[in-house]
Design a protein around this nucleic acid. Structure first.
Lengths: 253, 253
DNA sequence: ACGCGCGTTGCAAAATATGCAACGGAGCCC
DNA sequence: GGGCTCCGTTGCATATTTTGCAACGCGCGT
């Protein structure tokens, strides 16, 4: 375990909130100002941070470089992008792509709404496993024991009055998701936003990602949201087919 | 100086080329496999890397998160974006935004061409100071001594037969750029791409960024490239005015 | 001109990072 | 089914670095 590495990465996290001077960063750090200074110099040398003319540090260009390469390495993202763009254009609403990365469900693409709306999600953030529609879609496809283990280990943060608050409720909903082939976030994560998601499968039929449409409740009611399902399913089927998935009802033999 | 931090950041650089196993990364490292393993574990803990099901490490979601925040913190980028989008739509060609970050000129935005073209530039990469049009625009506005010092310190890598090869040639061209208010990359960086750039000024009149149109030479000859200048200048003036710049010929007094 | 604040430096001491040999598990081949 | 190989991992002793401190230098403001 490298303590100075972890400290440096935490400094990057601090700079995520905005540019800061050495003194400001040191005042929030658990180590001496001299230590902070040396870590920043190393991060600067490798272009992870840059110092501006007012001696403020900010996140540096190496992050953009690595980030865009990292996104490009996610073949699924590139393959899905044109389909998601079509969905975004057809519906006018925010479209997300998310997948498991390690133990977490991470947003790996996002197309903004034509309407002036803002919501929590951002590429690189995780989706709340007990609230986000994309996460429910991914969980629903896991083997029962794994699903149950994950459900048992979650912390059921209550984002809104509608957030699921325990394991049993989540598992019951995942049964519904598995049966109906789509999931809802009924304002469970953000009070005024609801969301519908559907699975993206690979050639084995396994769910490898989920795509969703998210809409402020003032723009579309529940019936309107469900009305997006045909276009969403069409989109996720197209992506799945591009990955080699064959629908059961079109199999020959 | 933190050696382990630098080693870890180098590992991130290695993963920029694509996912790799511990053994693969260790074989390219200068430290023991055990050390590489520990660094990767720390990077994984902070979500800078993620391990997939085949035990391959890849760049992790924290990079996307930090990158998008870093880009958002560049107010100039957000302010310029709508203007650059209009230029991109009007011309159909690749549009770049670049600015000094520390001692380097870095691309901070890019809008892709409507044509199926690909070029070197990417957000987060640096522009070659002696070849890229955006870099010439930024250099041309520096005080003479600083310009000369930078010109003297450059390594005049010869990318193409047309690349400027010494300090005197660069300084002479920067005089032209300062006088005419725009710069060309006449296939000096990439053989089959040329580019025209113009300055973006702040309220003091100082050049704080440059915007450019880049075009493959097969799509547009030199006259055609120069024909983009009115739209480009209109765009950079609009951005400059948004930053508080006032054109000399519209001053009241 | 002086005082203050911030970034930086050199050095001793505190603390960690490193490499090594061996282990465990998984996968493959016979 | 057993053995072998390969890869990721572990514990520990040693090598090496990291850290904090006091003081310094510079720039800015009064």
């Amino acid at each position: 375990m490298s303590q100075s590495l972890l400290r440096a990465l935490d400094l990057l996290g601090e700079l995520a909130a905005g540019p800061a001077t050495l003194d400001e960063l040191a005042s929030r750090a658990t180590v001496h100002k001299t230590t902070v200074m040396r870590l920043l110099h190393d991060l600067e040398e490798k272009r992870f941070v840059v110092r501006d003319e007012q001696q403020r540090y900010r996140l540096g260009r190496k992050l953009f470089e690595l980030s865009s390469l990292a996104l490009e390495q996610r073949d699924l993202r590139a393959l899905a992008r044109p389909h998601l763009q079509r969905l975004n254009e057809a519906t006018g609403h925010t479209v997300h792509l998310a997948a498991f990365e390690g133990p977490e469900v991470t947003y790996i693409d996002k197309l903004e709404s034509r309407h002036p709306v803002r919501m929590y999600s951002r590429i690189g953030l995780t989706a709340a496993l007990h609230a986000a529609a994309v996460a429910k879609v991914l969980l629903a496809d896991l083997p029962r024991e794994r699903r149950e283990a994950i459900a048992a280990s979650l912390e059921y943060t209550q984002f809104t009055a509608r957030t699921l608050t325990d394991s049993a409720a989540l598992l019951a909903e995942l049964e519904d998701v598995a049966r109906q082939g789509w999931a809802l976030d009924a304002s469970e994560h953000e009070e005024f936003v609801h969301c519908i998601a559907a699975p993206i499968r690979d050639e084995t039929g396994r769910v490898v990602a989920a795509a969703s449409c998210s809409v402020p409740v003032v723009l579309l009611d529940r019936a309107g949201l469900l009305g997006l399902l045909p276009e969403l399913i069409s989109c996720t089927h197209a992506i799945s087919e591009a990955l080699g998935w064959v629908r059961a009802d079109t199999k020959v033999g």
